[in-house]
Simulated scan of single mutants.
Amino acid sequence: MKIEIFADIVCPWCFVGRRRLDEALTYFDHSDDVVISYRSFELDPGAQLYSGASIVELISKKYNVTLEEARGFNENLLNIGVELGIDFDFEKMSPTNSFDAHRLVQLAIKSGLGEEMVESLMKGYFEDGALISDHEQLASMASRAGMDFSRVSEVLGSDEFAIEVRRDESFAASIGVSGVPFYLIEDKYAISGAQDTMTFVSAMTAVWSKLK
Rank of each mutant, 00 (worst) to 15 (best):
A142D: 04
I109E: 15
F171D: 06
S158R: 04
D100L: 07
A142V: 12
L104V: 12
G124S: 05
F161S: 07
E127T: 13
D128A: 13
E160F: 09
I163W: 02
S120K: 11
S120D: 09
Q137C: 12
H102V: 10
S170R: 01
A139I: 01
D100I: 06
I132N: 03
Q137Y: 03
G146Q: 05
E116P: 01
S120G: 12
S153F: 06
G157D: 06
R166G: 02
R103V: 06
S153Y: 02
S158P: 01
E119W: 02
E127G: 09
K123A: 11
H135V: 13
E160I: 08
G129K: 02
M147H: 10
I109W: 08
M117E: 03
V152W: 06
A139W: 02
S150A: 14
Y125N: 12
L156F: 03
L131T: 02
S153I: 05
A101Y: 02
Q106N: 15
A162Q: 00
M117P: 09
L138E: 12
V155W: 05
E116R: 00
V165H: 03
D128F: 08
I132Q: 05
R166E: 04
V105W: 09
R167N: 08
L113I: 01
A130C: 14
E160A: 14
L113Y: 00
I132G: 10
G146M: 07
S150F: 15
R144Q: 12
F99N: 00
H135E: 15
L121C: 13
E115M: 07
S170N: 03
R103N: 06
A139C: 15
M117L: 14
D134V: 03
A108Q: 08
S143Q: 11
L107C: 02
A101L: 04
R151I: 15
K110M: 14
L121S: 14
E119P: 02
S158K: 02
K123V: 12
E136W: 09
E136D: 14
L104F: 13
E164F: 10
E169W: 01
R166C: 11
G157C: 09
G112H: 03
I132E: 08
S143G: 13
M117F: 09
E164S: 10
G146K: 09
M141R: 11
A162F: 00
G124R: 07
L104R: 09
G157S: 10
V118L: 10
Y125V: 12
E119C: 04
A108G: 14
A142S: 11
E136M: 12
E116D: 05
S133P: 07
E127Q: 15
F161I: 00
F171T: 00
E119L: 05
E169V: 01
E136N: 10
L104P: 13
E169Q: 04
L156V: 04
R166I: 00
L138A: 13
H102D: 12
G124C: 15
F161W: 02
I109T: 14
R167T: 08
F171E: 13
G157K: 03
R167S: 11
E164W: 11
D100V: 05
G129N: 03
A101N: 03
